[in-house]
């Protein structure tokens, strides 16, 4: 099992993926057979973090218009079927990155993903999470740890 927290801890609530990984590193015993890694801001670097795990769980900041701190949970099919919502001149969205990885890294084609997204309040330079996002990060970390217990 590989757990990856995406985002930048120097950009406010964008650091929520890192915050969850940080908490998981404290919650999860070493012998669990689970690795929790910081994924930073490029999902296409996932293959560099992957060591043959069958499942990869991803945690990222989300922007959907819901209340800050809202937790979105997507299973494998829902995540990969998510439409390309970032028509972006410089980088691909998470779903599109995962679809490209499945095509380009044949060993990863059978990887099953699960996604936790936490609705952000403010993405701006600075360290630390806003209160609702910090609370959601605690909740998601506990939820993941419980699932793995």
């Amino acid at each position: 099992m590989l757990i990856v927290g995406l985002g930048n801890p120097l950009m406010g609530d964008d650091g929520v993926g890192h915050a969850v990984v940080e908490r998981l590193c404290r919650l999860l015993p070493q012998h669990h057979g689970v690795r929790a890694e910081y994924g930073d801001t490029d999902a296409l670097r996932l293959p560099a973090l992957w060591h043959g795990e069958e499942e990869v769980w991803l945690v990222d900041a989300v922007c959907s218009g819901a209340l800050p701190g809202t937790i979105h949970r997507l299973d494998h099919e829902a995540l990969l079927a998510a439409p390309q919502r970032h028509h972006h001149a410089h980088r691909l969205s998470l779903p599109e990155s995962l679809r490209w990885i499945a095509l380009g890294v044949t060993e990863m084609a059978s990887v099953r993903y699960r996604f936790w997204g936490i609705e952000v309040h403010e993405v701006a330079p600075g360290e630390g999470l806003s209160p609702p996002v910090a609370a959601a990060a605690e909740y998601v970390a506990s939820e993941i740890a419980d699932r793995l217990a």
């Binding site: 985002g7 801001t41 990222d60 900041a61 959907s64 997204g117 952000v120």
Partner: peptide
């Protein structure tokens, strides 16, 4: 790309 936010 200093941030990574997934839009849903």
């Amino acid at each position: 790309c200093s941030v990574h936010v997934t839009c849903l």
